[in-house]
Design a protein around this nucleic acid. Structure first.
Lengths: 333, 333
DNA sequence: CTGAAAGCGCTTACAG
DNA sequence: CTGAAAGCGCTTACAG
């Protein structure tokens, strides 16, 4: 029913090898023959079978993206960047969200037989299995955390410098000294580095980060909401809150409003990521732009390079970070 | 190097047929033999090649998701739902964003040879090619718009009733009469049906929707911002704005604030979708919950059913819609 | 420039 | 319960 390479070959009166050459832009084919074949293929709605092609070539032209929580502004922007370069290289993107470690493990086991490479952005997964992938020489990237004992290279957004500049702005421009930090998951590199940048800026200003001013928010709105509540109930509440990502900043703003704090008059709130809605919040959120699209694009570039040149040493691609001053910090913009 | 079914068969001293049966949970295999094979496979890190399997079975166990703008809160939630059921059925999800018609067309051409079904949620694409897919009997779903002359079935969120209840709330509970509508793209079913629901509620209250009170916003924040600006500059600005989705409502709120309107005292703003951030906005956004996760899950269910039972008549799965009263409409919550 | 043929790694009807 | 063998639809080294 469905036309195959044999159907087309028969109709064109050539061998299947010639049809294959026509479709693969081989130089060793008569242009006229090629044209005739393509015409017949078009008429029959023929498209080469990806499975057969993959089997013959031992490649899937497919990359897997494994995310912890697929449903975030960060993810949707990242995937858009990833897709933009994957498309050009004729690669497909397989998307998986692994909510917890129970999902991640079988997934990782399956993926090598169906993809050419993996971008692993989930914090939950068995390091033992990752080491196994590594020993097998299977190309993959781990994002947002480090795997003990493994150097896989990856994308490195300059979290530390971004956080440093952001907090320095709060201290130098606005004179805030009592500054709280709403943290993400402890094992996430993003969180660790942003905290480090924050600490450094405070340190330089002679401020030490009070332990009661660190609350944990788990990188989502609800977490930010609760963390802010906790901070604002302190006997001596902070004058400014730095939420380790924008989603938590959104939650923190909401909590602050609900508790009667005016932003930024009573309380400044800043975030990190510069998600699309950041500029449309009330007040517009001061944050750090992460070039998320760019991160997705570079991650795929890097992985593709690992696939095509397995012998090359691992690379780390830096990704820029830009302070976005808006009004939630107290600036007039 | 990489173990194949032959490697395992040789080590286990059986034929490849037996190894295949072990992996496919065939009933016609000695449990002891199976256990031995699985153990050897595990030791060798063997996983059956998906390409070879697909070729032999003539199925890819892969579904394609084609979105217009991948980078929206709607999409990320939808895909999460889609993935949840795809995973259970052992299907993979291929994700594509087609920004415009130039992308969509070649994509649609390629997909049938690499997937078992398509969920097409992009407004831009060549209807001729969609008809062709249909004639080929290839399983697919078109979301968010109708294809002239084609009945493909799909997911039907009750946009009209949701919008009706929302606007009825504005009229009945708050007594607003001058209500503006910020529209999405004209050809989108979501937009058309929401407008229809809005009109109906106004009609029943004896209000006719003034033409100058309809502005176009293109379903994103920037569009909502500009549309609201335009509406609020009217000689007689609206008392309430119904933005056809939450992203535009976010933009509209931002514009209103910037122009000095207090929400909801001077201007009520409501949206549609109930994206995750809606409840965390300032003020929290009154909107309509769309069960987006559910939509993604049902879309995949439906497509899978089309694949397994091609002869069944097309189905339309309804998806519920719930009014979410928060504070941006003027309620105290 | 073109073709015959082997091979990619599976599945499964058939025979035993 | 197990095996030998054909077949899935391609690619490509080799020969011409």
């Amino acid at each position: 029913m469905k036309p195959t390479i044999y159907t087309i070959a028969a109709q064109a009166g050539v061998s299947i090898a010639t049809v294959s050459r026509a479709f693969n832009n081989s130089p060793r084919i008569n242009p006229a023959t090629r044209a005739r074949i393509m015409k017949i293929a078009e008429e029959n709605g023929y498209q080469p079978s990806a499975s057969a092609r993959n089997l013959a070539l031992n490649s899937t032209e497919t990359l897997a993206l494994v995310f912890p929580q697929i449903s975030t502004p960060f993810f949707s922007e990242f995937i858009r960047g990833a897709e933009s370069v994957a498309r050009i290289q004729h690669y497909q993107l397989l998307v998986y969200s692994s909510a917890d470690i129970n999902d991640a493990d079988p997934l990782l086991r399956l993926l090598p037989s169906r993809t050419d490479g993996i971008i692993l952005a989930t914090a939950y997964s068995n390091d033992a299995y990752i080491h196994r992938l590594y020993r097998q020489g299977f190309p993959f990237l781990v994002l947002g955390r480090s795997v003990p004992g493994l150097d896989t290279g990856g994308i490195h957004p300059d979290n530390e410098s971004g956080a440093y500049q952001l907090v320095k702005h709060l201290v130098d421009q606005h004179g805030y000294r009592r500054i709280a930090y709403i943290a993400g998951p402890e094992d996430q590199l993003h969180n660790q580095e942003r905290l480090a940048g924050c600490r450094q800026a405070l340190f330089e200003a002679g401020i030490s980060l009070d332990l009661e001013l660190i609350a944990r928010g788990n990188f989502d709105e609800a977490g930010g909401y609760q963390a802010a509540q906790q901070l604002l109930r302190l006997a001596s509440p902070p004058r400014a809150i730095f939420a380790a990502n924008d989603q938590m900043a959104v939650g923190a703003m909401s909590a602050a409003e609900a508790m009667g704090f005016r932003i930024p008059q009573d309380l400044a709130i800043v975030g990190f990521d510069d998600i699309p809605t950041a500029r449309y919040l009330n007040p517009p959120l001061t944050t750090v732009n992460m070039a998320i699209f760019d991160q997705g694009a570079k991650a795929v570039e890097l992985l593709l390079r690992k696939i095509s040149e397995p012998e090359q040493p691992v690379e780390v691609l830096a990704t820029p970070t830009t302070l976005m001053i808006r009004r939630s910090c107290g600036c007039e913009e």
